[in-house]
Design a protein around this nucleic acid. Structure first.
Lengths: 158, 158
DNA sequence: TGAGGTTACATGCAAACGCATGTAATCGCG
DNA sequence: CGCGATTACATGCGTTTGCATGTAACCTCA
């Protein structure tokens, strides 16, 4: 492993550690009685969408298998937090959106959670550093592997 | 939510997105046939320890409940990858370490995985940016909430 | 020293997950 | 059109997870 690769791996490991440490801290909060963090993640993602989205689209944003997501949506629908409607333009698809109750839940939990997040992040980083971190992470997230790169590993010379 | 809190939440969300995007990419690799990513995480953590560690210590580094970790270790022991020994200094504890086979597995998978990690990270970030990211994430990880802060939320005035 | 409390790990059990596969709708192309 | 291939989501099934609790070793203090 050369220096660049080592650097890259150390950076990834640090990101992983930060993620794990903060997730543990957040998970220990007492705000997840009604909604697990994973469920909140789904509601949050839906809350960010101006209009209903497909299950497949939702799946792109959530770290969960497609069947697991499908069933989690089942449960959220059964609890009245999410609405599942057929897609008029594609009979195979379903369109998901928050119900009123779902929005209310998401906002309620979101307010509490945002407080913890703010405290944890500002505890370690200055506003400038937060801006830098956001920018770096955004780069990482927004440049996924191209489909070609996944099958043709010779092409990644940029 | 004031500006600082908003900034902090945006940074956390960006980190979360980066984590999810890269995890998805790595999970799609074909190197997890013998060992799941979570299992690899455990072996990797053990590989970084010069001497055997307690289950509780391992638990601090892994995003998994204590019972789940205990059983995962069961399975890894059954598969001959991890050694579970009684702690001579404390009859309640167990000391965990990699077996030869466990080390070999970890190294084999680790080499392949490190390649993917390096490609994904260097695809989006320059060496300078990788260094920055590592430094920022290390700060986040290394400053956990103090126990007092968890019970006495009035004290976080730093 | 020994009773009560605490810590470290294991176990019972229901819920949730991933993988493989099924079903139904859409697409592509002769 | 119509037939096979593909896409989108759901379901069956064995495995793994988390929560609550159990068990055993340690620690404290009278």
């Amino acid at each position: 492993m050369d220096g660049g690769a080592r650097l890259a791996n150390h950076a990834w490991e640090a990101l992983l550690r930060a993620h794990a440490a903060l997730m543990k801290e957040f998970a220990a909060e007492e705000i997840w009685r009604d909604l697990s963090m994973r469920e909140y993640d789904v509601l949050y993602t839906l809350s960010k969408c101006p209009k209903p989205i497909r299950l497949g689209e939702l799946h792109r944003h959530v770290l969960l298998s497609q069947p697991a997501l499908s069933r989690m949506v089942d449960r959220l629908v059964a609890r009245g937090l999410v609405r599942r409607a057929p897609d008029p333009g594609d009979g195979r698809g379903v369109l998901l959106s928050l119900t009123e109750a779902g929005q209310a839940q998401q906002r309620r939990i979101g307010r509490l959670h945002a407080r913890s997040v703010a405290e944890a992040m500002t505890r370690s980083l200055t506003p400038d550093q937060l801006t830098q971190l956001e920018s770096l992470c955004a780069r990482l997230a927004d440049r996924p592997a191209t489909p070609e790169a996944l099958t043709n590993r010779e092409d990644h010379g940029l």
